[in-house]
Design a protein around this nucleic acid. Sequence first.
DNA 1: AAGTGCAAATGACATGGGTCAAGTGTATAA
DNA 2: TTATACACTTGACCCATGTCATTTGCACTT
Lengths: 245, 245
Amino acid sequence: MNQVQLAKQLKVSCESCSLSELCLPRGLTSIEMTQLDDHIERPRKLEASSLIYQPGDKFFGFYAVRSGGVKTYLTKKTGEQQILGFHLPGEIFGLDGIEHNSHRCYASTMDNTSYCAIPFEKLDELCGVLPDLRTQVYKLLGHEINCDHSHQLLLGQQTAHERLATFLLSISSRFKHRGFSATSFMLPMSRHDIACFLGIAVETVSRLFKSFQQQGIVKINRKQVDILDMNLLNGLVANCEETDS
Amino acid sequence: MNQVQLAKQLKVSCESCSLSELCLPRGLTSIEMTQLDDHIERPRKLEASSLIYQPGDKFFGFYAVRSGGVKTYLTKKTGEQQILGFHLPGEIFGLDGIEHNSHRCYASTMDNTSYCAIPFEKLDELCGVLPDLRTQVYKLLGHEINCDHSHQLLLGQQTAHERLATFLLSISSRFKHRGFSATSFMLPMSRHDIACFLGIAVETVSRLFKSFQQQGIVKINRKQVDILDMNLLNGLVANCEETDS
DNA sequence: AAGTGCAAATGACATGGGTCAAGTGTATAA
DNA sequence: TTATACACTTGACCCATGTCATTTGCACTT
């Protein structure tokens, strides 16, 4: 136990990380967390628009964003990209590498970003002896699956208005979850990325942001978003989602 | 080992199942398979258009289709549904229940269907002692995630033509994988379901099927599909997917 | 403070595919 | 064999959104 305390002094640890309640170690005991901790590589730092991995790259493990932001995406040969997810601090990415032990999509930073790397091999070993960690990993994968499903509903059945409103609400609730304002925040991604994520054109994003502003729902200046009427915003998607969160 | 043989005589077992190479037990040793086998409930049988579970239902575990077919879907309050996946014999569904220990989507049969039920609690326990099974479960979840990602690319970036062609190719390759013809098969789902899955209108499905026929790519009669020119069909999506399979 | 480079916004126009409304099988029942 | 129902097809029309071309406006140099 003494060397554990020593280790904690020498490097950033999960236990001392302000994001641990959102991240992989959530719900683990201190001892369990330390066992996990010992295998985590950190912190890796990259500047904006750096590629973290691309299709075919060997699967190392999961990545947890500490600061900044990451997007994952697939592309058509013709170049169009479909953004699969935006990953904010405390969120995990890299799960696309599990199936084939190599990645299927691209991951790149949207901003100066630091993140932790959790080697899958070690994680799997620990899962053999720590049932709580195993559960945590299942829930993580299950969460990704459910998010993907909601996004399929959005891409397949929602109008452009509904998509953009849903998007703003999602970002808002994620900021809130991390302890920030739910109504005033900076978008970490470009208009282009928003469009690629929602399956619409950049121009449509611009026009709808303008329209939302004219309706008094939000105030948007460059990347700064202020939600003026959360009820109205919710109303834009009220007829969309069958289930509550 | 004797009681194992006895058990095999008394009930359908994974080891005797023709689908085991496609299903959860793939890659397990005989002994491992038997351990898993002992906890599987089977066979459950339902007629066409029966609801298996719906949002809010308690999560029991994974389900493996033995015969027939199952669709999973989400709905908007206004009634439109987005089909998330079609599940053919040998394929697994039910993963949407992991995150919250309750299901988030609907699952219903498309035809007279029988399936096995694998209780998650037991599966998880076994995962603690059988690393191969644990890997198998991760790959299963990883596979679902990758499929969902491809489908997001389809819904977000592909034209109606490309979507329908991709769909036919997917069904074709899944029949082939199960040892059936890749070029001549019966679609297990309605036009309506195809449309809901691809995020387009039923009428568009009809028109495109007609157009594909006129181009000599396929011959379609009701649910019977004959792919006449696989190259042409591949050509319709050639510019879409960046990565190979 | 003027210059350069992008991201974003705006306007004009085009169109893929949705919607609506009939029609046409095909299968089951009587 | 006729009736009924339902899945599918077809045609006419139109609109939400995409595309293309231009303009605006930050941010960062020098």
